[in-house]
C-alpha cells in the first residue's frame, strides 16, 4: 500500500487525500494516547524493562497467531496478557528478576522464529511484526485498537489513584488497605494491552521508544505530576503524527521517524533537565 505514494515531490497537504494515511493517523493517535499515559506510570514504577520484555513475549504470540490464521494483534495480546499476569503474581519474589525475564523473553523470540519458519512466510510478515507498519493498518484493526484503547484508558483512570499511592509509598498504601498485588497485576495487564497496541505502530522491537521515550522526556521537563502526565501524552501524539508526516514526505519508514523523534525528545529533555538542575543550587536549610 505505501507503494502507491512513490511519486515525488509530495506536498504535505495531500497527505489526507489517502485513506490509508487517514487510517494511519487515527490508529497512531489512538495508540499514542495509551502509550503516553501507560508509559508515564511504567517509568514511575521502574518497570520499563518489564514493558520491553512483554513486547518480546508478544512476538511469539504474533507469529503464532499468523500461523493459525488469526490477526497478529490478538496473538500479541494473548501472550502479553498471560505474561503480565504471571509477572504480576510473582512480584517481588522474582528476586533476580532481570535474569528470569531475560531468559523467558529469549525463549519467546526463539518460539517466534520457529513459528515464522513453520509458516514459511515472506520476510515482510516478520518485518511488520518486529518493526511495525502503521501505513498498513486495516480498518478492522483500527476499530480493535479503538476498543482496546477505550478499555485500557478507563481501567487506568479507575486505578490511577491507588496505583500512584502504591507506586510512591507501597508500605503506607498497604497499611491504608490498598492491595499491592491487585494493583501490580492489574497495572501489568494494562501495560500488556498498551504494548500490544504500540506494537502495531512501531513493532515489538521498538515499543520502548513509543511508551518510554515520551514519558521519560515529560518527567524531565515538567515537575508537576499532572502536567508531566499530560505532556507525556502530548509528546507521544506529536512524535507519532510528526513521524507519519515525515514518512509521507520522505518515503522512509514511519517507525524510523517515530523512534528518531522519541530519542531526540528524550535527549533534549535530559539536557534541559541537567541544565536546570545545575541552575538550582542545593542548599541544606
Amino acid at each position: 500500500m505505501p507503494g502507491t505514494v512513490r511519486s515525488k515531490p509530495k506536498l504535505i497537504a495531500t497527505m489526507f487525500e489517502y485513506d490509508f494515511m487517514r487510517t494511519a493517523f487515527a490508529a497512531g493517535g489512538i495508540v499514542a494516547l495509551v502509550a503516553g499515559a501507560v508509559g508515564f506510570f511504567l517509568i514511575l514504577r521502574n518497570l520499563t524493562f518489564a514493558g520491553h520484555a512483554l513486547s518480546h513475549v508478544g512476538f511469539a504470540g504474533a507469529t503464532g497467531s499468523v500461523l493459525i490464521g488469526v490477526s497478529a494483534l490478538w496473538g500479541l495480546l494473548a501472550f502479553t496478557l498471560a505474561a503480565a499476569v504471571v509477572m504480576g503474581l510473582l512480584g517481588n519474589r522474582l528476586r533476580d528478576r532481570d535474569v528470569a525475564v531475560g531468559i523467558v523473553l529469549s525463549l519467546a523470540l526463539g518460539l517466534g522464529v520457529l513459528f515464522l519458519f513453520l509458516y514459511s512466510t515472506s520476510a515482510s510478515e516478520a518485518t511488520t511484526i518486529l518493526f511495525g507498519n502503521l501505513l498498513g493498518v486495516s480498518i478492522d484493526t483500527l476499530w480493535s485498537l479503538l476498543g482496546l484503547s477505550v478499555a485500557t484508558l478507563l481501567a487506568l483512570a479507575m486505578i490511577s489513584r491507588p496505583l500512584l499511592f502504591a507506586t510512591l509509598e507501597p508500605e503506607l498504601a498497604e497499611a491504608k488497605g490498598v492491595s499491592l498485588r491487585f494493583i501490580s497485576v492489574s497495572f501489568l495487564a494494562i501495560v500488556a494491552v498498551a504494548v500490544a497496541e504500540a506494537a502495531q505502530v512501531v513493532g515489538v522491537l521498538l515499543v520502548f521508544a513509543l511508551m518510554v521515550g515520551p514519558a521519560a522526556a515529560a518527567q524531565r521537563l515538567a515537575s508537576r505530576l499532572g502536567w508531566a502526565l499530560i505532556l507525556a501524552i502530548f509528546l507521544a501524539l506529536a512524535e507519532t503524527w510528526s513521524g507519519l508526516a515525515l514518512a509521507y514526505v520522505t518515503d522512509w519508514p514511519t517507525t524510523f521517524w517515530i523512534v528518531l523523534l522519541s530519542c531526540c525528545g528524550y535527549f533534549v529533555a535530559t539536557a534541559k533537565g541537567a541544565l536546570d538542575w545545575q541552575a538550582t543550587t542545593r542548599v541544606e536549610p
Binding site: L44, N46, A157, M158, I159, S160, R161, P162, L164, F165, A166, L168, E169, L172, A173, K176, G177, V178, Q219, R220, S223, R224, L225
Partner: peptide, 25 residues
C-alpha cells in the same frame, strides 16, 4: 529508590491523601 523519584514534594505528600480510593488522583 525513594530518593531518586522525580516527583515534587507536594505531589508526593498528596499521593497519600485518601490514596486508597478508586479513580483519578
Amino acid at each position: 529508590g525513594l530518593a531518586d523519584l522525580p516527583i515534587r514534594g507536594w505531589d508526593f505528600v498528596a499521593s497519600a491523601w485518601q490514596g486508597e480510593r478508586w479513580g483519578l488522583p
